[in-house]
Each structure stands twice: as C-alpha cells, then as structure tokens.
C-alpha cells in the first residue's frame, strides 16, 4: 500500500488473496515502518489535504494536523511559488515523547507517534518540545493532538486521508521497510530531504524538490501574516 493507485490495484486483486497469502505473509515478516514522501514538484498547494484531514479527524477550526504554507521565493528567473506541506514527522527520535510526564504519547509498532487521549493531562510540554509545530492542544477535546498517519485508517488497510485526497499524487505513503514499496522506490530514484535536520530527530516524512531555504527556519516576511495582523513589515507590537 503505497499510493492510491497501488491501493486500488491491491483492492482489485482481493479475489486472489488466497493464492497470494503465503507470499504476503513472508513479505510481512519484517514489521512495517510507516513513512511519507511528499513530491513538491507535484504539489499545487490546493489545501485539499488540509481540508480532508480536518474533516476526517474532526480538527477544530483554526487548528491543523497538516497544512500547506505557500511562499514566494526569489529565483534566477524572478519570483516563484513554493509550497511546503507540513505534518508530524513521526520521528525516530521524537522530542515529544521523553518530555511527557504521564507517558501519554508513544510510538506504535509501525512507527507512528500517537497520543493516548485518555491519559493525556494536556500540560502542553510535548507541544513545546516539537520542533515542527506539529502538535497543539485540541480546542474540542482539550488534549494534545497531532497527525497520527490516520492510524484508524491505516490499521484497516486504508490510506491516510491526506494521501487519499491528494489530487496530484504528491503525497506517497508506505512501508519504509519494504524495498518493493512505491515510497522506497521513489526514494531510491530521487534525492530526498527531511525538515530541520539540525534537530537530529530522524524524521520519517521526506520531500522531493525541497528548496534549502525551506528546510530549516524559513526567513519570512512581508506577506499574509503581516496583513492579517495589521502590521507594517518593520513594526512590531509588545508581547
């Protein structure tokens, strides 16, 4: 299960499942390790993933498990538009897990970082610790919230909602431990980068075509935020 196309192929091949079962069993001997690859060449910044995630996971207005900031960058041929889908990176070394004082956040066997909503005291420490701003305190549930790679969908063989809805197939989801998965094949064919390498978190969200100016702290200004805050570019208010 790597992309919508492959998923449909698998679904159509369901009738031959009995024949394929032994082969599938051997392929699944190694535990899955979920990852996502975002091909920025294909992303058009339509926010369909943002909307699909919000609806699928009942995320309150103004909060996001995934979103796609859009920037204008200078290039050799003048300014160009750049998009950067952001979500939890489901890190190998997630800074959000060790700080949790009640062990409410943990990694699943497939490597997804999730929150036990019944255990969370909503102290916000994990929100502070995440360098990707992928966590928030959900205004509806009152507990820490984040992308789970749609664990409720992937656990029953479905794709994450953002991948399912992506009109350009820019998001590819799959098993990083499976060399035959589409995500692994694409990663072998292209140079990929992760966000914020300086934190050494081992992110499991990879990007094709990521501009170096967007990989770490993005030097930004003079755009939508200033307009929204009603500020001049150079003027700031007191905290």
């Amino acid at each position: 299960m790597n992309s919508r196309r492959e998923f449909l192929k698998l679904a159509m091949a369901g009738s031959t499942a009995a024949v394929a079962a032994p082969a599938a069993a051997s392929a699944q001997a190694k535990p899955k390790r979920w990852g996502m690859l975002v091909d920025l060449r294909k992303c058009i910044g339509c926010q369909a993933c943002t909307v699909a995630c919000t609806i699928e996971n009942d995320v309150p207005e103004g909060q996001h498990r995934t979103a796609v900031p859009v920037y204008e960058l200078d290039g050799p041929n003048g300014p160009s538009q750049a998009v950067l889908p952001r979500l939890c990176n489901h890190c190998d070394e997630p800074p959000c897990i060790p700080v949790c004082p009640v062990n409410a956040t943990f990694k699943t066997e497939e490597g997804a970082v999730v929150v036990d909503a019944e255990q969370c005291v909503a102290c916000g420490y994990c929100v502070q610790a995440c360098p990707y701003e992928a966590r928030f305190i959900n205004h509806k549930t009152g507990v820490a919230d984040k992308c789970t790679f749609c664990v409720h969908r992937t656990s029953v063989g479905l794709l994450p909602a953002c991948v399912e809805t992506c009109v350009g197939n820019a998001r590819v989801f799959g098993d990083l431990n499976d060399p035959e998965s589409e995500i692994r094949k694409l990663m072998a064919q292209h140079e990929t980068k992760g966000l914020r390498p300086e934190f050494k978190t081992g992110p499991n969200v990879y990007y094709i075509g990521l501009d170096d100016r967007l990989a770490s702290t993005v030097a930004v200004g003079g755009g939508a935020r200033d307009l929204r805050q009603g500020l001049e570019t150079s003027a700031h208010g007191e905290v």
């Binding site: 900031p69 859009v70 928030f136 200004g221 003079g222 755009g223």
Partner: peptide
C-alpha cells in the same frame, strides 16, 4: 526573505 502567501499561526500553549 520568502514572502508568506499563505501562513498558519499557532497559539501559546
């Protein structure tokens, strides 16, 4: 710097 055409803010937790 990059110009933010679409940006998302976060609140103090």
């Amino acid at each position: 710097p990059a110009v933010d055409l679409m940006s998302f803010d976060h609140e103090a937790v």
